Measured scan of single mutants.
Amino acid sequence: MDVFMKGLSKAKEGVVAAAEKTKQGVAEAAGKTKEGVLYVGSKTKEGVVHGVATVAEKTKEQVTNVGGAVVTGVTAVAQKTVEGAGSIAAATGFVKKDQLGKNEEGAPQEGILEDMPVDPDNEAYEMPSEEGYQDYEPEA
């Protein structure tokens, strides 16, 4: 019985440690998101679009440190934060509304985080759909 109880105690310690790591990862992701939003706020009209992409990228980098179902929630929060940063930029006159959601080359930025393969159960990952990809044929 002692062996059984000791095993359960060790398992509990492992769960607590994993929860603490997840909590730490979420806190880091939130900190990076805040950094990115402050970065966007300090940019001029020309830099705002690039700044919004930076927020998304920093958040995406930190999301990889967070495991399990938390990833889905962090990704949703990050996307809403990026959308909010863009709205703030438009409201303050840093950028025109028609410039939001495009990178410096004018290509749409939507789907940055949505296409990231995420499995809350950590069982399997699927690649994003290939609808947006084109076949590449090298020139002879």
Rank of each mutant, 00 (worst) to 15 (best):
G68Y: 01
M5E: 00
A107P: 06
E139T: 03
A17G: 04
M5S: 02
Y39M: 10
E130G: 12
T44W: 14
L100R: 08
E83P: 05
D121W: 05
Y136H: 08
G111M: 15
D121K: 11
F4A: 00
A69T: 07
T72L: 14
A11M: 15
L8G: 00
T92V: 13
E35V: 06
T33M: 15
A140G: 13
V71D: 01
A124G: 09
A17M: 14
A89Y: 11
E123N: 09
P117T: 08
I112N: 08
K60H: 05
E130M: 08
N103M: 12
V82D: 02
V48E: 00
T22R: 01
I112Y: 05
V15Q: 00
A27G: 04
Q62D: 01
L38D: 01
G41R: 11
G14W: 06
K80S: 06
T59V: 12
G36R: 15
P108L: 09
V55A: 05
K12Q: 05
P117Q: 13
G47A: 15
E13A: 15
I88K: 03
D135P: 04
H50M: 14
S129G: 08
E13M: 11
V66W: 14
V118A: 09
A90C: 14
E46C: 06
K23R: 07
T72H: 15
A11E: 00
T64R: 09
E137I: 04
F94H: 04
P117M: 07
V82W: 13
V70P: 01
T59D: 00
K80G: 04
P138G: 12
G93R: 03
N103K: 10
A17W: 12
A29R: 02
Y133T: 07
F4W: 05
A53V: 10
G68V: 11
K43A: 09
K10N: 03
D2E: 01
K58R: 09
A85R: 03
I112H: 09
E131R: 07
S129T: 09
V74P: 01
E139R: 08
G14T: 15
N122E: 12
P117G: 13
G36S: 14
P138E: 04
A11F: 03
G31F: 13
S9G: 13
E83T: 08
G51Y: 13
K97P: 11
E28C: 05
A56M: 14
